[in-house]
Design a protein around this nucleic acid. Structure first.
Lengths: 211, 211
DNA sequence: GTGTGTGAAAGTATTCACAGCC
DNA sequence: GGCTGTGAATACTTTCACACAC
């Protein structure tokens, strides 16, 4: 997984939690709260205060002893930690129901993710607007990637197409992929790859449901 | 998290991996492979052989030394481990693009998950078929849950509605929830709760992309 | 007094390495 | 010889507990 030296030392488990802290802080900020303690935040997100303090300590000292954290300040720091002080260009490959649902998700742009293109193999949908401008033919993928810097490719194709599509975006230099297709994609190239997988989620529930 | 005594000792990280092993095994089975070693399976799913052997060892001895694993046998054992030798009743709450995408996912029924109902608050979609028969009004949720044993509630509502909906299904006795709404849901009741969160996934990519 | 920041301790998870069986 | 199953070793993560700052 490509990452810089500073970030090599951050526990992998910490990173997704930072985004949860950020979301909760934005929520309490909108309710007018200006200061929050690690205990209050922990109660909100369902963890323990030491976890939060330890997670934050990897990045710096953001709190005031005896007081807690300034909400505005902590939001700004977390955004910096997460690389959200800039924008990232995103494409979605697969303009079916799932791809369209993701394209229409409004929180997307709000955090600096710019959806700049959407691709599909089905000639019936090419040119239609599925939430990200006209859907482009998948055959134009490499041409598009040459002319546009894409940071994240979200894959929502059928599973049969997903691995090939991922190989193509990685070969074209896209540095990260978020795969929703129900395959466990792999890549020999050093790409940042994350998988979201309904089938695994359901089976995990099944495991814990089974008595 | 509700689970029986046998399962208390299984590492939480093992469970999702079992489902990945199962999927990959089903794939190689369909290609006619009858025997597989932990090394071959590890190469396929991108992990290491010891991890697979250790994961399996929590449940029993399924392999043959010097040979490997019989694919058919291991698939059967994994299904048993994961509680997939029975069917589970599922409802989807929220019949937007995402809920519809999930309802149309075909791998769903194939692994024993029966989608028996779909709910929405919008009177314009009630009665329409979004992949799971006629969409029911959310006001009928409790009545439905009284008359039908539901094991898993998948929540794809807007975030403003999600926590309330989750509280309602949990109060009505649904033992597990898979939440796709961009909130970190919590529950005081002992419910099995899993979250799938686009925003967290994107921010995690952002973290590793940021140099 | 209150709550952060952080070493140290405890708890989990992964990987190693080899005895034992095919 | 080859590959599993597993205790031991290593690595990682969370939690504790307290010095220190406000």
């Amino acid at each position: 997984m490509a990452q810089n030296s500073k970030k090599l030392s951050i526990p992998a488990a910490t990173v997704p939690r930072l985004s949860q802290y950020l979301r909760k802080l934005q929520e309490v900020q909108s309710r007018g709260v200006t200061t929050i303690s690690s205990r209050q935040l922990a109660d909100e997100v369902g963890t323990n205060p030491a976890q939060i303090r330890k997670d934050l300590s990897y990045f710096g000292e953001f709190g005031i002893r005896g007081v807690g954290y300034d909400v505005d300040r902590l939001i700004a720091e977390l955004k910096k930690c997460l690389g959200l002080n800039r924008s990232w260009n995103v494409i979605i490959i697969g303009s079916g129901k799932l791809g369209t649902a993701l394209a229409l998700y409004r929180g997307f742009q709000r955090q600096g993710f710019n959806l700049i293109g959407m691709f599909d193999a089905d000639s019936n949908v090419i040119g239609k607007d599925r939430g990200a401008g006209a859907v482009l033919p998948i055959t134009d993928l490499e041409k598009f990637l040459t002319g546009n810097e894409v940071h994240i490719a979200i894959v929502t194709t059928p599973s049969a197409a997903a691995q090939t599509v991922i190989d193509r975006v990685v070969a074209a230099g896209v540095p990260s992929v978020l795969n929703f297709a129900p395959i466990r994609a792999t890549s020999s190239e050093p790409v940042i790859l994350r998988q979201v997988d309904l089938s695994t989620e359901l089976m995990t529930l099944s495991f814990y449901l089974d008595k």
